[in-house]
Design a protein around this nucleic acid. Structure first.
Lengths: 245, 245
DNA sequence: CGATTCCTTGAGACAGCTCAATTTCGGTGG
DNA sequence: CCACCGAAATTGAGCTGTCTCAAGGAATCG
């Protein structure tokens, strides 16, 4: 009764073809449907603390969540940025080793852990899809490691914007030419935690990119990229493979 | 005919119970056995360049290999450190996005790609194990991201030594108390590429840890840790969960 | 025993951090 | 619609950890 839209059937789900359930047959989907329930979080709310027991795994239907780790003295590093269709939780593990936080309003499609694990063991399509998604995340983590380890502050900002633009493009319509509008759910501090910088450095580098005409700002959280290729040139990446045409 | 020891059966394999084949039934093992072959690389040899086509996936039987990425101007970041039993390659992808390099003498157990993928699709135990290993690697990558993004040079060195000590301990016998001997296969430069530092900074910080009595050196590549807990205190990590007793 | 590669150590430069004001934005209530 | 408030972002000035450039020293191998 809480949200009619969200409580709808898997067939109508906006992430049906991208989430962990993407390859399910109707029969498998029916089994998933039996163990699923929706959950909402407000921006800023913690979904789970590191070490907490989590009774479910979940797909992000809507909004942005983060995984992050903290050192003794409070330094924190974001280690996962979860957008719609991304998967939360690890089968076979009761507790999350990371803090999981909603940084915008978030809706999750949760699956009770035990039945989900049984499903994994019995239906190949879920397990296959989860493997693929995990390997994609591993690739993303490795790209992220290059950013953290070897890029300058300016390159880090350009890389983050490019990554988000790329992901938004995959979801909606892909356009190489013409201005791209990026809606950052992230605060400057969250960007700093993503990139291993301070929020002041993030702010300075965004200003610098703006002054160089590579990006424009519309309010605090919206970035307009007139020419994505100019932005990509700022990432420092080897441009061999890529979406250039 | 080339190496009698290496050409032996899976039953005698030193990584039998830890590699991608760990959970295989005898029947499955037999199928694997049909598509496997061994390959050797010398220290320093490249196993694959980024973008190269790789006709196989493989398990590391012996030695140490690395995955690394390079920026336009030559800056490089290591993104994977592959020890014995680790898996190389991604099912469903023809080319490696990373440079794969043997940094010591390496023996691989290779599986021809196509038959391996068929095996994946038909035998659940290989796919299950691969999912688990991938998720472990993802966790490792995230720990690594924290190191790269937020730790000081000294903390980075201490973390690397702790990680290698931990992995060697898993292989052999685990000992919490008493001196631990770490055989680094890595040069200072490789450590720098791992940690996002320069080799000079690595050298300086190792010297500093030595001068503080936290480690001792035996030659260039062998480190003796008299008290692992003192080293772990230098990592900056939150020590809540861990192998303390 | 020379040559090569790897490692150590030093001195100065600089990118990004810290600390400290302001300013801007977005919402809220009058 | 406007005035106000708090959170978020910007900007400045000085500091510091790591990098850069450079010179030697130690191990390893033919």
């Amino acid at each position: 009764m809480s949200q009619t839209a969200a409580e709808s059937e898997c067939g109508d789900c906006p992430i049906r073809h991208r989430a962990v359930c993407a390859r399910c047959e109707p029969v498998e989907l029916e089994r998933l449907e039996q163990i699923k329930y929706y959950r909402n979080y407000e921006a800023g709310q913690t979904i789970a603390w590191a070490g907490d027991e989590m009774g479910f795994v979940a797909s992000v239907i809507r909004g942005v969540a983060t995984l992050s780790q903290t050192l003794q003295d409070g330094r924190t590093q974001m280690v996962g940025l979860l957008l719609s269709s991304d998967f939360i939780g690890r089968p076979g593990r009761m507790t999350s080793p990371y803090d999981v936080t909603a940084i915008s309003d978030v809706t999750l499609c949760c699956f009770r852990r035990k039945p989900f694990e049984q499903l994994l063991a019995t239906t190949p399509h879920v397990a296959e899809r989860l493997l693929d998604m995990s390997l994609d995340e591993l690739d993303a983590a490795r790209e992220w490691m290059l950013i953290l380890g070897r890029k300058t502050a300016r390159e880090k900002i350009a890389s983050l914007l490019t990554i988000i633009a790329r992901r938004e493009a995959t979801t909606g319509l892909m356009r190489i030419k013409g201005p791209i509008v990026i809606d950052l759910a992230l605060t400057r501090e969250a960007m700093a935690d993503y990139l291993g910088l301070t929020l002041e450095t993030v702010s300075r580098q965004i200003s610098a990119l703006k002054n160089d005409g590579i990006i424009q700002l519309d309010g605090k959280r919206r970035v307009i990229v007139p020419d994505i290729r100019r932005l990509m040139l700022e990432t420092g990446d080897d441009m061999d493979g890529g979406l250039i045409s």
